[in-house]
Design a protein around this nucleic acid. Structure first.
Lengths: 202, 202
DNA sequence: GTCTATAATACGATAGAC
DNA sequence: GTCTATCGTATTATAGAC
């Protein structure tokens, strides 16, 4: 987008958007590193390079920053899964690439995955729906259901199948983020996929 | 554990232990229900029926209460797994009963499982080792390793196999605790076990 | 829009009587 | 061992100049 008008800091337009993003970026990093409750507005101020007043100009408070990050991250995950759904036709391909993207995202943008997995939404944002009943997971359930209808996946409870598909990969992502796995997840992809697909395939 | 001497409240001996336990019980419930950082010492005071001073007499502070609960819970889980290890001989039986106990404990003592799964140890007790590298998980890895040596479990990375064993069941426990599953987990045991064992069996 | 200074409060922890 | 009263501090949020 345009860049001619606002060259100096403090000018309106995308400079303001820049400030917003700087705040969100700093907050995400601090929230995932030290936890939401161990992060003060002062910490966000230091990390973002802005002032308290500026932060309160853009957000109503710490909680709104967390909520904004939550929706941003949810949208990111959702578009990822939708891209897989649209890009492949069989349940097998779709499931495989969901797991693959999960691993790739963990390696490429660990702070995003960290926010998704470790952020205690129930504790910080108790009014939001839990992530497991959100749209991304509904998409996964759809993939599973179509796979059962097509005879690719053994008939069973959809929730069970979803847990079978994501349980092991998510657990590995957690271990990787905790530093318990030294290899990149992508190197374990084929072994992981073997386990996952055995568990739900006909 | 005599009981004759101290009949009135406030008397030393097991009455003091009773106070300790009342504090721990109240804290566990509040921590899992509203989160550690949303629970104040005042809240624990109200729920336990004791006074601030009494709480600080038994514990050095809020963090020590959390640490105490952490070790208590860890010991509980560990003895559970050890009982399974000692009670069965094959990897198949051991793995099955680990999953079974996981489900049974979730139904019988959800507040314990909730504490294990949802308590953000890294955020509250950053100095403790993460639960994944603690003794209970070492026990599981042992079961897996013996199973591979005996030719019951496909040869693969032990960490991967552990994730394959626990990933799906743990995910289902989470869903159950969040209220997303209305059936008791024990009713899904056989289907879950089918998925799990397919994923790691030879 | 951004800044500094400050108000208001909630919290963890302590002191000291009983 | 238990209690009440209180201290010191950290934190959120606001007020008002620029």
């Amino acid at each position: 987008m345009g860049e001619g008008i606002a060259a100096r800091a403090g000018t309106p337009g995308e400079a303001a958007e820049g400030a917003r993003q700087r705040i969100l970026e700093a907050a995400r990093q601090l929230f995932t590193q030290h936890g939401y409750f161990n992060t003060s507005i002062q910490d966000i101020r230091c990390a973002s390079g802005l002032s308290i007043g500026s932060i309160y100009h853009h957000f109503s408070g710490k909680e709104e920053i967390a909520r904004e990050l939550f929706y941003e991250t949810l949208a990111f995950v959702q578009s990822d899964i939708r891209a897989v759904y649209d890009g492949y036709a069989t349940a097998r391909d779709r499931c495989y690439h969901v797991v693959r993207r999960l691993f790739e995202t963990t390696e490429a943008a660990p702070e995003v995955m960290e926010y998704v997995l470790y952020f205690k939404h129930r504790e910080v944002l108790p009014r939001e729906k839990p992530i497991c009943s959100s749209q991304p997971f509904e998409l996964i359930k759809g993939i599973i259901a179509e796979g059962m209808a097509a005879g690719e996946i053994r008939p069973m409870d959809e929730v069970l199948a979803t847990a079978a598909l994501l349980g092991m990969p998510v657990r590995l992502v957690q271990l990787r983020l905790e530093g318990a796995l030294h290899q990149p997840l992508t190197e374990s992809l084929s072994d992981t996929w073997e386990c996952v697909w055995r568990s739900i395939a006909v």
